[in-house]
Measured scan of single mutants.
Amino acid sequence: MIINNLKLIREKKKISQSELAALLEVSRQTINGIEKNKYNPSLQLALKIAYYLNTPLEDIFQWQ
């Protein structure tokens, strides 16, 4: 199972779901689904999230 800290990191950086979704060219619902662990992002999307949040990938997504 993958645990993610996306919501915590996104809120710490004061970025809304809508703003992050626009940067990543995905829907706000996609961001919401990832934050709620409804599904895991593709590797490409995970890397883009880490890039736009300027945060190491392993700080956002962790195996458990």
Rank of each mutant, 00 (worst) to 15 (best):
M1P: 12
M1I: 14
M1D: 05
M1S: 06
M1V: 09
I2D: 05
I2Y: 12
I2S: 09
I2L: 12
I3A: 08
I3D: 05
I3G: 06
I3N: 07
I3Q: 08
N4G: 03
N5A: 05
N5G: 04
N5M: 06
N5K: 07
N5H: 08
L6P: 01
L6H: 01
K7F: 06
K7Q: 12
K7E: 11
K7P: 04
K7A: 10
K7Y: 06
L8G: 09
L8E: 14
L8S: 13
L8R: 14
I9K: 04
I9P: 00
I9C: 06
R10F: 02
R10P: 01
R10C: 03
E11Y: 07
E11F: 07
E11C: 08
E11K: 10
E11Q: 12
E11P: 02
K12H: 12
K12W: 11
K12G: 12
K12I: 11
K12S: 14
K13G: 05
K13E: 08
K13W: 08
K14C: 09
K14A: 11
K14R: 14
K14W: 06
I15L: 11
I15Y: 09
I15E: 01
I15Q: 05
I15M: 14
S16K: 10
S16P: 07
S16I: 04
Q17S: 06
Q17A: 09
Q17T: 09
Q17H: 04
S18E: 15
S18T: 13
S18W: 15
S18P: 07
E19P: 02
E19S: 10
E19K: 14
E19C: 07
L20C: 02
L20W: 01
L20F: 07
A21H: 02
A21G: 07
A21R: 03
A21Q: 02
A21W: 01
A22T: 12
A22G: 11
A22F: 11
A22N: 11
A22D: 12
A22R: 14
L23V: 12
L23H: 13
L23S: 11
L23E: 09
L24H: 01
L24I: 13
L24S: 07
E25W: 08
E25Q: 15
E25F: 10
E25V: 08
V26Q: 04
V26R: 04
S27K: 08
S27P: 15
R28I: 15
R28F: 10
R28V: 15
R28W: 15
Q29I: 11
Q29A: 14
Q29H: 14
Q29C: 10
Q29F: 11
T30Y: 15
I31M: 04
I31E: 02
N32C: 08
N32F: 07
N32A: 13
N32K: 15
N32I: 15
N32P: 03
G33V: 10
G33R: 15
G33L: 14
I34V: 06
I34N: 00
I34Q: 00
E35M: 02
E35T: 01
E35V: 02
E35I: 02
K36H: 15
K36R: 13
K36L: 14
K36F: 09
K36W: 08
K36S: 15
K36A: 15
N37L: 06
N37W: 12
K38I: 14
K38Q: 15
K38A: 13
Y39Q: 11
Y39G: 05
Y39E: 10
Y39A: 10
Y39I: 15
Y39D: 06
N40S: 15
N40I: 14
N40H: 11
P41Q: 02
P41N: 01
P41R: 01
P41T: 04
S42W: 04
S42K: 06
L43Q: 09
Q44H: 14
Q44D: 11
Q44K: 12
Q44F: 11
Q44L: 12
L45W: 04
L45M: 09
L45R: 02
A46F: 03
A46N: 01
A46P: 00
L47Q: 12
L47C: 10
L47W: 10
L47A: 11
K48S: 08
I49G: 00
I49K: 00
I49N: 00
I49F: 05
I49W: 01
A50K: 03
A50G: 05
A50I: 03
Y51A: 10
Y51T: 10
Y51E: 09
Y51Q: 12
Y51H: 13
Y52V: 15
Y52D: 02
Y52C: 07
L53W: 03
N54H: 12
N54K: 12
N54T: 09
N54P: 00
N54E: 13
N54A: 14
N54F: 06
T55P: 01
T55G: 02
T55F: 05
T55V: 12
T55D: 03
T55I: 07
P56K: 08
P56E: 08
P56N: 08
P56A: 09
L57C: 05
L57K: 03
E58K: 11
E58V: 09
E58R: 10
E58F: 09
E58C: 09
D59K: 11
D59H: 12
I60S: 01
I60G: 01
I60N: 00
I60M: 06
F61D: 01
Q62G: 09
Q62A: 10
Q62E: 10
Q62N: 06
Q62S: 10
Q62K: 11
W63E: 04
W63C: 05
W63L: 05
W63Q: 04
W63A: 04
W63Y: 06
W63D: 03
Q64F: 09
Q64S: 13
Q64G: 12
Q64I: 08
Q64R: 07
